[in-house]
Design a protein around this nucleic acid. Structure first.
Length: 732
DNA sequence: CTTGCAACACTTTTT
DNA sequence: GTGTTGCAAG
C-alpha cells in the first residue's frame, strides 16, 4: 500500500477509537459508552475502508434504527469525504429491508405495488379480522393480539411455527395470526415486522439472492447493536462472512448499558451471541467520554455498577469534575415544577440558551405540570413525542384515499375512507360487505361490486355504496394524468375530505384543514431519489415515505426553547443542563418494571441513559407527595438515588426544618395528612386560597401560636411567607 | 348515522 | 384527572 494521507481520518481520534477505525477487516464489536464518539467511529471506519482499504462504497452497508441516525451518518460521511459516496447503503433496518423487497418483490411473493401498514393500520386490520372470525373484542383484545403477532414475527415465527401445544387460548391466537396474514396478503399490504421477516426469509431461502448480496457487501456496520431483535440479527448474520471469508465483515457498535428497548423485542444478548458466533471477533471498548463532567460520569458509573450481567465498562474524562449532582426533594409535583422552572429562569437570565435545558421524565403524564407552568410564565418549550405529521387522522384519511385509488383491493384503506366523510354507508351495509368479502375470499371492493350486482342491499344502501365506488373510479380517472401533488390536491377536494373538516368548528378543525394543505405541499416538495436501479411510482414512493418516516413530532418552527421529553426519547441527545424529575419508586423505576429483576435492570439502564445526557449540570428531583391519575400518592424516593454514590450528590432541601417533617412523612406513607400534626392547621402540599394572591400550595411553616407563619407558593404571585393570623387562608 | 353517557385504563417507541 | 372507546338511544 502506498503511503497516503490518512490524517483527516485519524486526527483527533483517541487510541481506542483509532484501534476500532483501523482494525484489519474481520468481525468487530465496539462497546461504545455514552458520549464516547461512536458515530464518529462508525463514520471514520467507513472512510478508512474506502480510502485506505480500497473498498468500494458499493460494498458497504450501514444500518441504524432511526431515520434520524441514518441521516446523520450519511451527512457525516459526506462531510468527511467531501462528497456522498455513491452506491453505499445507509439506512434503517426497515428502510433497507423495504428496499430489498421492492427490488425482489417477485421472489418475496409480493405484489409490485405493495403498501406498508403502520401500527395504526395494523391495529384496524386486526380488529377487522377479529370481526370476521366473530370473536369478542373484550376477550380477544386487539392490542394484545397485535402484540402477540408482532412478537412472533420479531422472533421469526410464522403461524405454523408457533407451538400452541394444547393451550386453547394460544391456539386461537395462532389462528387469528393466520387469518391476519391472509387478510394482509389479500390487501397487498405488509406491516413493519413483516418487512423484516420477509426480507430475512428472502435472503435465507433464496440461495441465489443471498449469494448475490454476500458477494456485494463486504462490510456491514451496525449502529445501536444492543437494540437489535432476533430477526434483525439473524438477517445480518445471514449476510456475514462464513469461515471461508465469503460474505460481509460485521462491524457492530453498541452499549449494553444503554439497552432500554427490551420490552419491544430488542435482545441485548445479541452482544454475547455475536461473540459466540464470531469467536475471533475483536472487541474494543470506548470508555473515554467527551460529553460530561467527572462527577456526572462517576455518578453514572456508580449507578450502573448495580446491574449484573454487564460486559463491563467505566466512563472517564480528562476534563473537569464539575459541580456535584443536585438533588431536590419537593413537597409535591407543583413544588417540583416550580423549583425546576426557577432554576431554568435563573440559567436563562445568565445568558444561556433555553435549548440547552432538558426536563426528562419517565412517563408522558409528567409533562403536564411543567407545560402548565411554563405556559403560564410564557417560557417557550417543546414537548417531544406525540402525534407526528403522517400519523394525524386527516392526513391518514387523505393517504388512504390515495392508496385506495391506487389499489382498490386495499381493504384497510377501503374501510377507513368508505364513510369518511359520512355518505350514508353505515355499519350494517359494511357488515354485509365484510361478510361477502370473507365468504368469497375477495376484497371489500370486489364484495361491494358483487352485492350491488346481485341487488342484495336496500336501495338506499346500494345507492350510497355505488356512489362511493363511482367516486373512487372517477378519482382514479381524473388523477391518472396528474402529478403527485395535483393528485393529492384533487383527491382531498373531490372526496369531500377537506370540506368535511372545514365545516367542523374549533381550532382543531382549522388545524386539520391546514394540515391537509400542508400535505399537498409535502407531495409537491417530495422527491424520490432512486439509487442504483431502484424504481418506484411517485405515489408508491410517497406513501412509503409517509409510512417509513412519519415526520417530525411537534414540528414547530425552530425556536430557542426548553426541551421536554421522556428518558427514552432522550437517548442519543445531550444538554448542558438536565433535570430528571419524578425520581420516585413506582414512577421511576416504574411500578410495572419493579417485579422482575431483568426489567428493573432495564429501568436502571434508563436512569444511566438519563444521567449521561447531562454535560455540565444534572439536577435530580422527587416529590414526597404527588397527585397521579387523580389519586394521592406518597412515594419513596427512587432507589436509584441511593445507588448513586453519595459523594457525588448535593442535597438541596427546600428548608431543613421541613425536610425532617417530610422524612417522617415519607416513612409513614400510609399515615393520613392529619398525622403531620402542626399548629398551623395546614399541611404541606395543601392547596389554599388567599384573597389577594389567589390559589397556592403550602410549602413550609414555622413558629407557633400568633407568630405561626406558612410559606405558600401561589400559582400566580409566586412564593410568599404569610403570618397565619392575618393572612386568612382558606383551605381548598 | 349521530349524539350522549358510562366504563375503562393509565409506561416506555421506532419503523 | 383525562382522554378514549363502547354501547344505547335519538
Amino acid at each position: 500500500m502506498s503511503r497516503m494521507d490518512v490524517s483527516h481520518i485519524l486526527d483527533g481520534l483517541n487510541n481506542a477509537q483509532r484501534e476500532a477505525v483501523t482494525a484489519a477487516p474481520g468481525p468487530m464489536l465496539v462497546l461504545a459508552g455514552a458520549g464516547s464518539g461512536k458515530t464518529r467511529v462508525l463514520v471514520h471506519r467507513m472512510a478508512w475502508m474506502i480510502e485506505v482499504e480500497g473498498v468500494s462504497p458499493f460494498s458497504l452497508m450501514a444500518v441504524t434504527f432511526t431515520n434520524k441516525a441514518s441521516k446523520e451518518m450519511r451527512g457525516r460521511v459526506e462531510q468527511l469525504q467531501g462528497s456522498s459516496p455513491h452506491g453505499m447503503w445507509v439506512g434503517t433496518f426497515h428502510g433497507i429491508a423495504h428496499r430489498l423487497l421492492r427490488a425482489h418483490w417477485k421472489e418475496a411473493d409480493l405484489p409490485q405495488q405493495f403498501q406498508i401498514l403502520d401500527s395504526d393500520d395494523q391495529y384496524r386490520m386486526i380488529r377487522r379480522v377479529l370481526k370476521g372470525l366473530e370473536l369478542d373484542e373484550a376477550r380477544w383484545v386487539p392490542r394484545q393480539i397485535q402484540g402477540f403477532i408482532n412478537a412472533r414475527k420479531d422472533e421469526g415465527q410464522r403461524p405454523q411455527h408457533v407451538d400452541a401445544g394444547s393451550d386453547p387460548i394460544r391456539q386461537q391466537l395462532v389462528s387469528i395470526y393466520a387469518a391476519y396474514e391472509a387478510a394482509c396478503k389479500r390487501a397487498g399490504v405488509i406491516d413493519f415486522a413483516e418487512l423484516l421477516l420477509r426480507s430475512l426469509e428472502l435472503v435465507r431461502d433464496n440461495d441465489e439472492l443471498r449469494n448475490h448480496y454476500r458477494n456485494r457487501f463486504q462490510h456491514i456496520l451496525v449502529d445501536e447493536f444492543q437494540d437489535t431483535n432476533t430477526i434483525q440479527y439473524a438477517w445480518i448474520r445471514l449476510l456475514s462472512a462464513d469461515k471461508h471469508g465469503r460474505g460481509a465483515q460485521l462491524f457492530v457498535v453498541g452499549d449494553d448499558d444503554q439497552a432500554i428497548y427490551g420490552w419491544r423485542g430488542a435482545k441485548v444478548e445479541n452482544i454475547l451471541t455475536f461473540q459466540h458466533d464470531f469467536p475471533n471477533s475483536l472487541v474494543v471498548r470506548l470508555e473515554q467520554n467527551y460529553r460530561s463532567t467527572g462527577n456526572i460520569l462517576n455518578a453514572a458509573n456508580g449507578l450502573i455498577a448495580h446491574n449484573e450481567d454487564r460486559m463491563g465498562k467505566s466512563l472517564w474524562t480528562d476534563g473537569v469534575d464539575g459541580n456535584l449532582i443536585q438533588l431536590y426533594a419537593a413537597f409535591n409535583e407543583h413544588d417540583e415544577a416550580r423549583y425546576i422552572i426557577d432554576r431554568i429562569t435563573e440559567h436563562v437570565s445568565n445568558g444561556n440558551p433555553r435549548a440547552d435545558i432538558a426536563i426528562l421524565y419517565r412517563s408522558n403524564v409528567q409533562s403536564r405540570v411543567f407545560e402548565e407552568k411554563l405556559m403560564q410564565q410564557g417560557i417557550p418549550y417543546r414537548v417531544y413525542g406525540g402525534l407526528r405529521f403522517f400519523e394525524r387522522a386527516e392526513i391518514r384519511d387523505a393517504l388512504n384515499y390515495l392508496r385506495l385509488v391506487n389499489n382498490r383491493n386495499d381493504d384497510p384503506s377501503f374501510e377507513r375512507v368508505v364513510n369518511q366523510p359520512t355518505r350514508g354507508i353505515g355499519n350494517k351495509t359494511l357488515d354485509a360487505v365484510r361478510n361477502t368479502a370473507r365468504l368469497a375470499d375477495i376484497s371489500m371492493w370486489q364484495a361491494s361490486l358483487q352485492l350491488i350486482e346481485n341487488g342484495d342491499l336496500t336501495a338506499r344502501a346500494q345507492n350510497a355504496l355505488e356512489g362511493f365506488l363511482k367516486l373512487i373510479i372517477q378519482l382514479n380517472e381524473d388523477t391518472k394524468p396528474l402529478e403527485l401533488f395535483e393528485q393529492t390536491e384533487h383527491i382531498i377536494h373531490a372526496s369531500g375530505l377537506i370540506d368535511h373538516y372545514a365545516k367542523e368548528k374549533g381550532e382543531k378543525a382549522e388545524a386539520r384543514v391546514e394540515n391537509l394543505q400542508e400535505l399537498v405541499s409535502a407531495a409537491k416538495g417530495f422527491e424520490f431519489e432512486p439509487e442504483d436501479g431502484e424504481e418506484m411510482e411517485p405515489l408508491t414512493a410517497f406513501l412509503t415515505h409517509a409510512a417509513l418516516e412519519a415526520g417530525e413530532g411537534q414540528a414547530d418552527a425552530w425556536e430557542d426553547c426548553i426541551q421536554l421529553m421522556t428518558l427514552h426519547s432522550a437517548k442519543g441527545l445531550e444538554f448542558p443542563l438536565v433535570f430528571m424529575c419524578g425520581m420516585e419508586e413506582g414512577l421511576f423505576p416504574h411500578q410495572r418494571s419493579a417485579e422482575e429483576e431483568g426489567r428493573l435492570q432495564e429501568e436502571r439502564r434508563l436512569c444511566y441513559v438519563g444521567i449521561t445526557r447531562a454535560r455540565e449540570q444534572l439536577v435530580l428531583s422527587y416529590a414526597e407527595h404527588r397527585r397521579l391519575y387523580g389519586k394521592e400518592i406518597y412515594p419513596m424516593p427512587s432507589s436509584f438515588i441511593s445507588q448513586i454514590p453519595a459523594q457525588y450528590i448535593d442535597e438541596i432541601r427546600p428548608k431543613a426544618q421541613a425536610s425532617s417533617y417530610s422524612n417522617n412523612y415519607r416513612t409513614a406513607s400510609n399515615v393520613t395528612k392529619s398525622a403531620l400534626g402542626n399548629e398551623t392547621g395546614f399541611s404541606l402540599g395543601q392547596r389554599v386560597l388567599h384573597q389577594k394572591f389567589g390559589e397556592g400550595i403550602v410549602l413550609n411553616y414555622e413558629g407557633q401560636g400568633k407568630s405561626a407563619r406558612v410559606e405558600v407558593n401561589f400559582d400566580q404571585a409566586g412564593s410568599k411567607w404569610l403570618v397565619l393570623n392575618y393572612a386568612n387562608l382558606q383551605p381548598i
